[in-house]
Simulated assay, not measured.
Amino acid sequence: MEAKDGSMGFDFTGIYDKIVDKELISYRMSDGRKVDIEFSQSGDEVSVSETFEAEGTNSDEQQRAGWQAILGNFKKYTESN
């Protein structure tokens, strides 16, 4: 993953544990931390909820903000395409 301006980037790898069409994506990152992404639909809207195990280097708030930024960019992309 990399910032559009190239100012920051990192490798992001993992293995999917479970995929339920239009409901759940569950995976483990290469360092073993677990991530669950849940999708719930209400009418024409879909809510996305992501739960992740925090790492010990950055604060929980920094990590939450980073994951939220990724979801925000995903939202912009899906709404414009």
Rank of each mutant, 00 (worst) to 15 (best):
M1Q: 08
E2W: 11
E2P: 13
E2R: 15
A3H: 09
K4N: 11
K4C: 06
G6C: 05
S7G: 11
S7Y: 06
M8N: 07
M8E: 07
M8L: 12
M8R: 11
M8W: 15
G9Y: 03
G9W: 03
D11Y: 07
D11C: 04
F12V: 15
T13L: 01
G14W: 01
G14D: 03
G14F: 02
I15M: 06
Y16C: 09
K18A: 09
K18F: 02
I19S: 01
I19Q: 00
I19H: 01
I19R: 02
I19C: 05
D21V: 13
K22R: 15
K22Y: 10
K22N: 15
E23P: 06
S26N: 13
S26H: 13
S26I: 05
Y27A: 07
Y27Q: 07
R28V: 05
M29S: 09
M29T: 15
S30T: 15
S30F: 08
S30P: 03
S30I: 11
D31G: 08
D31W: 10
D31V: 12
R33P: 00
R33V: 09
R33E: 04
R33K: 15
K34W: 10
K34P: 00
V35L: 03
V35N: 02
D36K: 04
D36S: 07
D36T: 08
I37N: 04
I37W: 00
E38I: 03
F39I: 05
S40H: 09
S40Y: 03
S40D: 10
S40E: 13
Q41R: 14
S42H: 09
G43N: 06
G43F: 06
G43C: 07
D44V: 09
D44F: 04
V46K: 12
V46S: 15
V46F: 11
S47D: 13
V48H: 07
S49C: 14
S49Y: 05
E50V: 13
E50W: 07
E50P: 01
F52L: 06
E53G: 08
E53F: 04
A54K: 05
A54M: 02
E55P: 00
G56I: 00
G56A: 10
G56D: 11
G56T: 06
T57G: 12
T57S: 14
N58E: 10
S59P: 04
S59E: 02
S59Q: 04
D60Q: 07
D60L: 12
D60Y: 05
E61H: 02
E61W: 00
Q62R: 10
Q62E: 13
Q62Y: 09
Q62G: 02
Q62W: 07
Q63W: 01
Q63Y: 01
A65L: 14
A65G: 08
A65S: 14
G66H: 02
G66M: 02
W67L: 00
A69L: 13
A69S: 15
L71Q: 08
L71P: 05
L71F: 10
N73W: 10
N73F: 13
F74H: 05
K75F: 10
K75A: 09
K75I: 11
K75D: 08
Y77P: 00
Y77H: 10
T78A: 13
T78G: 00
T78S: 09
E79R: 10
E79F: 11
S80L: 06
S80G: 06
S80T: 14
